[in-house]
């Protein structure tokens, strides 16, 4: 029974509000796109949900709890850059995750790694950028979490892998979970989204269902994004 509530949330770095007075409620059973241009505050917002950053002001609760030890059990997080020890190979990282997370399914992780043609004994530091991303995503998606926070999950991978990842997200879909995906590659993912959140200069400028956007504006989410964030 996942639920995220964010109230009056601000994160200030120096004199810049990276996240500026955001309010947001996310319900279970949804795949949500957190969409915004570079530097709009996506990663800062997600990091506050994970507890890696503390808010300057305002609150976040996940299942009624502030981010901390308890929420980490329920949240599977894919960071925007690699945070895993890169001397380890796929075998070792799967074992590491199995140690760390009660909800981790090693069999599922292995099956996905095989599907994507990973070499189980290659250390992470020798992997290509795309392969590293695949492995990190596999580890996150093999958890049976309440909340998935995926920060730019498809940035560096080829289109065939992108399809595989999207299918993985769909097949993993569960009515009790929330999947939050941040990206600026909207055309690739918009078909799998329930809800769309546009973020600009740390503020939420739109929160609607993807289907509402298509119906009301007679355009795709990608086209609306290009219009809203026109440079």
């Amino acid at each position: 029974m996942a639920r995220i509530e964010i109230k009056d949330l601000t994160k200030r770095f120096g004199h810049i509000n990276a996240v500026d007075d955001i309010g947001l409620e996310l319900e279970k059973g949804q795949i949500i796109g957190l969409l915004g241009p570079n530097g709009s505050g996506k990663t800062t917002l997600i990091k506050m949900m994970t507890g890696l950053l503390t808010p300057t002001s305002g609150t976040i609760t996940i299942n009624g709890l502030e981010p901390g030890v308890e929420t980490k059990k329920a949240v599977a997080y894919l960071p925007d850059r690699n945070a895993l020890p890169d001397h380890m190979d796929t075998n070792k990282l799967i074992a590491l995750y199995a140690d760390f997370f009660d909800d981790f399914d090693s069999g599922k992780a292995r099956a996905m790694a095989e599907d994507l043609g990973l070499d189980f004994s290659q250390p992470m530091k020798k992997m290509s950028k795309g392969t590293k991303e695949k492995l990190q995503l596999i580890l996150v998606m093999a958890r049976k979490a309440d909340v998935y926070l995926l920060d730019e999950p498809i940035g560096g991978v080829d289109p065939a892998t992108r399809d595989y990842i999207l299918r993985t997200i769909i097949s993993n879909y569960n009515e009790e979970a929330i999947v939050l995906i941040s990206t600026h590659l909207i055309a690739d993912i918009e078909q799998v989204l329930d809800d769309v959140v546009f973020i600009k200069n740390g503020k939420i400028v739109l929160h609607k269902t993807a289907e509402e956007i298509r119906e009301e504006n007679a355009c795709s989410v990608d086209e609306l994004f290009r219009e809203v964030f026109k440079c």
Binding site: Q30, I31, R167, I170, S171, Y173, Q191, V192, L193, D194
Partner: peptide, 13 residues
Amino acid sequence: RDLAMDAGVNPNT
């Protein structure tokens, strides 16, 4: 779920 995967769309859709 299978139809959604095949079409690459959200299961709720």
